[in-house]
């Protein structure tokens, strides 16, 4: 996935993204860090065009995905290939655990029970949740703990077999143990798909990502190997941020 000159904003406000260029390498974990309001959430929400779900939101530029501009694709088609996990766990309240995981497939017209059951198990295993819920697949999804709910949401996103998984501060509502489990599973799933994670937690970026993007006031300041950025940052502003001098 590649971003070219992406500008985005909200109704009546100043632009939030002021021309971002970025190449996201396949089958790696890329972390986006930066202080509050720098546009990191807006950027990730542009990648599968969830940004547009907000009334009055605007975006122009290019997001190249599979050789085509994602901003000109049908958003529904794009979102099947580019899944998303949100800040707060949001399982569907009327559905059981299994129904939650299968929701994306069912809503896209898959009704074969054995196919669905297989997808549910596979996705829950990938999200490292299977062992905890295999005996209560018919229990309501909202009955799980916060960390389990978030892994359920990851399983739900994985079930439609996306090529890219976007996570928008997925651990901000979770305790350290639940956060640790999610970080572990990210390291596993990157074997099969591209992961982009927004985080306000630099240690998290250092732990899970191979590449890191540092954003500041709607612009991309630095982009490179995580290892390098956290040891020898090129830009003065990056250094200030990661050493805690501001932000």
């Amino acid at each position: 996935m590649a971003v070219r000159g992406l500008r985005a904003g909200y109704a009546g406000g100043a632009p939030v993204l002021k021309g971002v260029n970025l190449d996201i390498r396949e089958k790696t974990v890329t972390a986006i860090i930066g202080p509050s309001g720098c546009g990191k959430s807006t950027l990730i929400r542009c990648l599968n065009r969830m940004h547009e779900a907000i009334p009055g939101a605007t975006a122009d530029g290019e997001i190249l995905f599979g050789g085509r501009n994602a901003l000109e694709l049908d958003p529904v088609v794009l979102r099947r290939a580019v899944g998303m996990v949100f800040q707060r766990p949001n399982p569907f309240p009327t559905m059981s655990i299994a129904q939650n995981v299968a929701a994306g497939l069912v809503l896209n017209g898959v009704h074969d029970r054995s196919v669905l059951a297989e997808a549910v198990e596979k996705s829950l295993r990938r999200a490292a949740l299977w062992d905890e819920v295999k005996d209560k697949l018919d229990a309501p999804g909202v009955g799980l703990s916060g960390g389990q709910q978030q892994r359920l949401c990851i399983a739900r996103a994985l079930a439609v077999e996306p090529a890219v998984l976007l996570l928008d501060e997925p651990c901000s509502a979770l305790d350290p143990i639940a956060t640790g489990r999610i970080e572990e599973l990210l390291l596993e799933i990157k074997e099969t798909l591209t992961v982009v994670i927004v985080t306000h937690n630099m240690q998290q970026a250092a732990r899970v990502s191979e590449y890191t993007v540092f954003m500041l006031m709607g612009e991309m300041v630095e982009y490179g190997l995580t290892r390098q950025m956290f040891t020898k940052p090129v830009d003065k502003r990056t250094e200030d941020y990661i050493t805690g001098r501001f932000g």
């Binding site: 979102r79 899944g83 569907f92 929701a103 994306g104």
Partner: peptide, 21 residues
């Protein structure tokens, strides 16, 4: 709104999100 976003992010058309979720 988070429920709506969750369903849209699965690549489900708007009308299906509304009627089925």
């Amino acid at each position: 709104g988070t429920i709506r976003e969750a369903a849209l992010a699965l690549g489900v058309p708007r009308w299906k999100v509304t009627m089925m979720v």
